[in-house]
């Protein structure tokens, strides 16, 4: 009897694996087929809009991104801007998420739902007023800097300017990602028992000490998840850089890509595909390396 049962179950198990395999296979094919074109075209000396097997394999498209176009600069700018925005989001959301988790203030719920729902506002609706604000800040800054630094002002403003400067775009990208990151961190801290802190409080630790020695180590997985998502979304945003950056020195990868695409009937598909692959790699790598621990982190969040 037992053997019969277990063999039946084994058969059932086999049936399940088959079902699982075919499900995963179908979904995977659906997911990766669109990538074939962009991947093959990037190595194709004669790339077209449609998929075909390259007649002449070449690295030329990639070389051109860095020699003919300013690919190196675009890559640096993208990494720098999105990197800074991500760090900013992680720090702010770490503190803010903790505060939201522990706070019992009456405005906590409205605040949380408010920032979540504000995400439905398409960024396109915010662009015009955002531009006005950033320009105002930018003009104030330049009014202060100009009398002091004179001709150097423009070089300084390239870093600290709000329009067409690193600082402005970093702040904007960070602000866009902050709501989701705050939610992730808040949910994460909800699952961290306050007992640890209470113990620390009893031991006489100050808020700074508690953060430094208790909360940051506990929050690391959550911070990593929030950072990862912020990085991926901010990396993919092209509307904000499009509107707020114009100097050639500040161009980022999506702008380079968009420009290559908008050359209408002069589109160079090989170049376009090569830029796309370069642009695609960092978030893909981030996702692939982080996928296990993402699930683990959200497990904490969902439980709480």
């Amino acid at each position: 009897m037992p053997t019969a049962l277990s063999s039946a179950r084994r058969r059932q198990r086999h049936g399940h694996s088959f079902l699982s395999y075919s499900t995963l296979l179908l979904i995977s094919v659906f997911c990766i087929v669109p990538f074939f074109w962009i991947f093959l075209s990037s190595f194709d000396g004669d790339a077209q809009l449609f998929l075909h097997w390259p007649q002449q394999w070449t690295f030329d498209n990639y070389t051109r991104v860095f020699t003919v176009e300013d690919g190196g600069l675009w890559l640096f700018n993208s990494l720098f801007i999105v990197g800074c925005a991500t760090i900013l989001v992680v720090v702010l959301a770490g503190f803010g998420g903790y505060a939201l988790s522990r706070s019992r203030a009456w405005w906590k719920l409205p605040f949380l739902y408010g920032i979540l729902l504000i995400r439905v506002l398409p960024p396109t609706a915010l662009v015009v007023p955002l531009y006005t604000i950033l320009l105002t800040l930018n003009n104030w800054e330049s009014a202060i800097l100009r009398p002091i630094f004179g001709g150097l002002t423009r070089d300084i403003m390239r870093w600290t300017g709000f329009i067409d400067g690193y600082l402005g775009i970093i702040l904007v990208l960070a602000a866009m990602q902050l709501p989701l990151a705050l939610w992730i961190m808040k949910t994460f801290f909800d699952s961290v028992s306050p007992e640890y802190e209470e113990a620390a409080i009893i031991d006489g630790a100050s808020l700074v000490q508690r953060i430094r020695y208790v909360l940051i180590p506990l929050a690391l997985p959550g911070l990593a998840a929030a950072g990862l998502f912020s990085f991926i979304f901010a990396w993919g945003d092209f509307l904000m850089p499009l509107i707020f950056l114009s100097s050639p020195e500040l161009q980022t990868l999506p702008l380079g890509l968009f420009r290559a695409f908008l050359r209408v009937n002069e589109i160079d598909y090989g170049l376009l595909a090569a830029i796309s692959i370069i642009y695609l790699l960092p978030p893909a790598a981030a996702f692939v390396f982080a996928r296990r621990f993402l699930v683990a982190t959200f497990t904490g969040g969902v439980k709480g």
Partner: peptide, 9 residues
């Protein structure tokens, strides 16, 4: 992978 692909790509 699709989730990692930026919107424009």
């Amino acid at each position: 992978l699709p989730n990692a692909a930026p919107e424009v790509v």
